[in-house]
Design a protein around this nucleic acid. Sequence first.
DNA 1: ATCATTGATCGTAATATTACAATTAAACTT
DNA 2: AAGTTTAATTGTAATATTACGATCAATGAT
Lengths: 109, 109
Amino acid sequence: MGITKSEIFTDKQNKLAGMLKALAHPARIAIIQHLVKSQACICGDLVGELGLAQATISQHLKELKNAGLIQGTIEGTSVCYCIDPKVWKQYKSALESFFSVEVANSQCC
Amino acid sequence: MGITKSEIFTDKQNKLAGMLKALAHPARIAIIQHLVKSQACICGDLVGELGLAQATISQHLKELKNAGLIQGTIEGTSVCYCIDPKVWKQYKSALESFFSVEVANSQCC
DNA sequence: ATCATTGATCGTAATATTACAATTAAACTT
DNA sequence: AAGTTTAATTGTAATATTACGATCAATGAT
């Protein structure tokens, strides 16, 4: 039906999936990379950099904001976006611990 | 329009987004965790474990298979699924290098 | 005050995803 | 051979996502 049955999974599973989803789009990856590179930046920049319409970028920024990954502060007519280092580290360690499990090296079955 | 404009992003960005997308669902996280725990397992198991219909789980398994994360070998009437350790390590290092960039610790702007 | 700039929001269209019942295909069991 | 079991596939419905034009709200510039 297009709706995820969140209630049957653990909080951790839902949260991890949500984190991954927030970054599961090349535009959002590109935005994050751009923010990292310039350490602080303005939305208008991105509209020039990426080849997407202003409304579309604003939508992606909103998702990243909802995920807590970025913050925006109003700066005159423009908005200054940057990565929230605390949340970034949380993401990093959550994914690290997910991927750090040992996977059997033997052939399947 | 619902279609991602892959052509305007780099291969790396598209690939990374694809990796994240493959895991961006709690059911797929749960499947991976179950496979890790039991090191090798059978689909029927999962239908019992998770509370999803067989068709739905089969669909999620297909996506993980397309992403290269799991392999299935036919074993009589059932299929034995397990994680591909090589691809798993690729994911791990790709995400590690994405998250390893230093993010400014100062307040925004 | 008027105009320009910037970015959020609204409305809409196209496509993708999630979920499941029903069916099918393949291999085992009797 | 007939029936059973297992998992893939098909068809379908509901919802979500992606994208963009148009508009709106807020601030700055003239």
